[in-house]
Amino acid sequence: MIHAQDLVKAYELGGQTVRALDGVSVDIAAGEMIAIRGPSGSGKTTLMNILGCLDRADAGSYTLAGEDVARLSGDRLAEIRNRYIGFVFQTFNLLPRMTALENVELPLLYAGKHREARQAAIKAMETVALTDRMHHQPNQLSGGQRQRVSIARAIVTNPAILLADEPTGALDSRTGTEIMQLFKHLNADGRTIIVVTHDPTVARHCQREIYLRDGRVAQPSATEALQEVAP
């Protein structure tokens, strides 16, 4: 599903060049549920941006679902994101002044699939078990409900990959666990799920993890290892 080789990304920061990614290779098979974990500054957000086609690597190759996306233009990347990737953000990022259902429809509208948008959005809302809140606006929903809406928005186009950036970061631990259970269900239905997190308890829900340190894939140290953390 994802085949990325030797990704390099550097930033200019205060006159100094920071290599946020320094030769990262990632292979993710279809149907996996995988965590990308690492301390802050490890480059996991940069990696997520590149895997999510929000950004392009300076060097290296990236094939997504058989398509070479390393050098595509902004608008082509927007299409790729729309078709292959569903984003779930830490702060939900639902659009205000639109109902939950309208939020969920939006990716299909951008894809030009106006006719099936309403039906597909309702189906996605069923998947996240939130059909009774479809016509509420985001500010009338709880944090957990908002994250469910944003997951519904992420799956509405039936993308190959769900990319979740700290999806439980703004939720209490019980709601967070519920959301992770939801991801597991979606994964059980065959969706590939990538969760970016610094939180070992979240990573433990995944089948495997890629650990990043200083822009490289590394082994977690003893204190950072998953089994060291109390559940």
């Binding site: 999510g52 929000l54 902004g74 608008d75 927007a78 299409e79 994101r81 729309n82 078709r83 569903g86 984003f87 953000f89 990022n93 659009l95 205000p96 939006l106 990716p107 951008y110 894809a111 928005r153 186009t157």
Partner: peptide, 16 residues
């Protein structure tokens, strides 16, 4: 600005 970022993330093109 953030909303624009979200819209682009879920597939809005510059023209949209």
């Amino acid at each position: 600005t953030r909303e624009i970022g979200v819209r682009k993330a879920i597939g809005a093109k510059n023209g949209d």
